[in-house]
Design a protein around this nucleic acid. Structure first.
Lengths: 223, 223, 223, 223
DNA sequence: CATGAATGAGGCTTCATTCAT
DNA sequence: CATGAATGAAGCCTCATTCAT
């Protein structure tokens, strides 16, 4: 009380209250992505958001809750958005569109961060994981599963297990999103440059899905 | 006064002194895998290794160095070992063997941990990442690249970019190793049971690699 | 643009501006009483006063000064008021009136709070304590001392040390004011219900003051 | 981790592990007494105990628990001890002994502190208050009640309400223990010096308890 | 060699105080 | 005048590291 001190500070001070929470969330997404939950420092988040440490607590009751809101308000909506745009076309076209849409979503510096987040820290927060699964993954799986099943029914794809295929497709997408933005790309493998990667993924996936070799060839040869 | 006092702690588990460092490394591998570098506590590592906190410092000068040695002495050799056992057979057989050998390596509880480690924390330690890349990844890539190239040359595989294929294959392998051990498997996607996963991976990869439908005409025609 | 905007906060309780400082003081008395000086939060005081945190600083330069003013403007006058009403009557009647007047003063929820304040936090503020002593205690002691001395002189009370008796009387009064409002009365001792307490105090005090058993007159007379 | 720094400190370092917890408790009793729970700083407790902040956490999981243990291990036993020594004698002698024994217990600098503690902060910790009441107060009340009742039965004391009398006696004892050690004794009232206080208390109490004047009537009337 | 008590820097969190609106 | 968003010093607590035994 009596030892309280005044804080004369440079008046570098904007007032955008409407924006504050989002600024903080965005900064938090970055920092959590880079350092993980434990490694993320509120000081760093505050700095990147252009606010002070204390300000964060005006909007979020704790570091954990901040993380929670990042998932709720940034990650989930970002993922959920994609599923609505598959539109129509052949099953293969839809798969390609699915891959490219997601990839363009990952085409932001923070993307690797959030993939890492989901890969590695979500499981320490069962409630969040549950929420994330329901809101983001389950719906995506539904859409993807439908496309795959339709492709199989039409003969566009080989007879495959849709559930297994889904996790293969996602593994390829997520992992490369992570690697493509890694501070040291050479770390995990010699890799194709970022821009080409999605082409390789599309190619790999479509080749993996296409019908078994022998379908019609038998016929044309008949020539 | 007498210095002949028997320490009454329980000597139920007096380990051979030569084993100490390794026990610590093994415990550290576990703990680092579970909690990440920042989250790992030396106390926990010490407990699991059956030693006291101070003992760790007899062998490793710091937590960071301990992590370094885990990578150096446990991860790298573990990975490197696989490459030597591909033996011969068709390219497809070698790929399958490669996948199954690695998978069996991951068939330990700690595996998901180290995959997570490599995915998420290695890039914060550029020197380690460098070392890891050279010792573990580069060699693996070489071997895998050879197999792929041979497969293509022999017409076993379609015309593909070996470098791209390598990262696809590794993505599938590592990601599923991670997911298959997640405390909450349903979290990230509806997934096939652990035991079947490798079969699906093998199937997916081989289908992705197999020759394009149309090459066959070329050959028969050659008749 | 127009500065004619009606502030939509709820104007259900627009207080007269002249009342502001007092409302704040009253709220502060409550909150300081409940939580002590360190534990009292300006936010809480502001809320109870129906103003915002910043407003407090329009009237009081700091938390410490606010506390100071609470003592100066609320406690001291409240105590001082009693001394003027003792009126006349026998010494015993005056003592009883003194006790009951004070007790009725304490018959407010906030009373225990300020007793606690005086008991426990005043000594950390020597200047305040000094002020409080001069304004509230000294005068009260004077009055009480006079009554006691008169009682002794008249033979209403036994030969006693007025200074000692004063602190005994005040101890009984203050302590029971504190206990009678304790959130958990049974905590500190099994106690008589609030309403009866003052009767017991009066009885105890008067018995302690009354002349020595053998109003001696009886014996000497026997001569 | 990498930013970790070494702590070369002066080796002013004793190893009295057996004593540590008690040293800390004693220091905590002091500091809690002086500043209250909220106002007490662990740094200060640590300093007075001659240890560092961190050391406290080797023995007590939190500030709250430390407070809890102070009550449990220091206050309660200290109080409980007295009740066993009342021995026999007339009721008045026992009351006097009760008062003097307790007073001598309070004859330590920290005494005012713990009285303040009990007066002011215990009610914020219902579980502790409960424990304290059962262990320290209830037993004391029982003993004191017995003495009072016996005194009344024997005609040593006037017909009085034992429950009320108990709280009067304790009020006098506790309050003066608090005041007698106040850093500024003059604060609350002009008071008799410490050493005499107990005599005044004994006198006041015994006079309050002694039989009503009128027992004598029997005699004088006899005139 | 091994132990584990002790240390203290640093992170999360609170809240008195300031100040643009 | 009044507001309440913003600030940052300071307190609690954790844990990597040290060192007497």
């Amino acid at each position: 009380m009596s030892e309280q001190v005044t804080h004369p500070h440079d008046p570098k001070w904007r007032r955008l209250p409407e924006e504050r929470p989002r600024q903080i969330l965005v900064a938090a997404l970055e920092v959590f992505g880079e350092f993980g939950i434990a490694g993320a420092k509120l000081e760093e988040i505050a700095t990147r958001a252009g606010v002070s440490k204390g300000t964060i607590y005006l909007y979020f009751p704790s570091k954990e809750d901040l993380f929670r809101e990042v998932v709720r308000q940034l990650l989930v909506p970002s993922i959920a958005a994609v599923e609505r745009e598959l539109a129509d076309g052949t099953a293969a076209e839809q798969i390609e569109r699915y891959l490219r849409l997601h990839w363009s979503h990952f085409d932001r510096p923070a993307a690797a961060g959030w993939v890492r987040l989901v890969f590695t820290e979500l499981h320490n927060h069962p409630d969040l994981a549950q929420f994330y699964y329901h809101e983001a993954i389950a719906k995506s799986n539904l859409v993807l599963g439908d496309v795959l099943r339709r492709g199989v029914a039409r003969g566009e794809f080989r007879a495959l297990d849709p559930v297994a295929a889904i996790s293969m497709i996602k593994a390829l997408l997520l992992t490369h999103a992570l690697w493509s933005r890694a501070p040291m790309p050479a770390t995990l493998s010699a890799m194709r440059p970022r821009e080409e990667l999605i082409d390789h993924i599309v190619e790999f996936v479509l080749h993996a899905l296409r019908p078994t070799t022998t379908p019609s060839p038998a016929v044309p040869v008949a020539t």
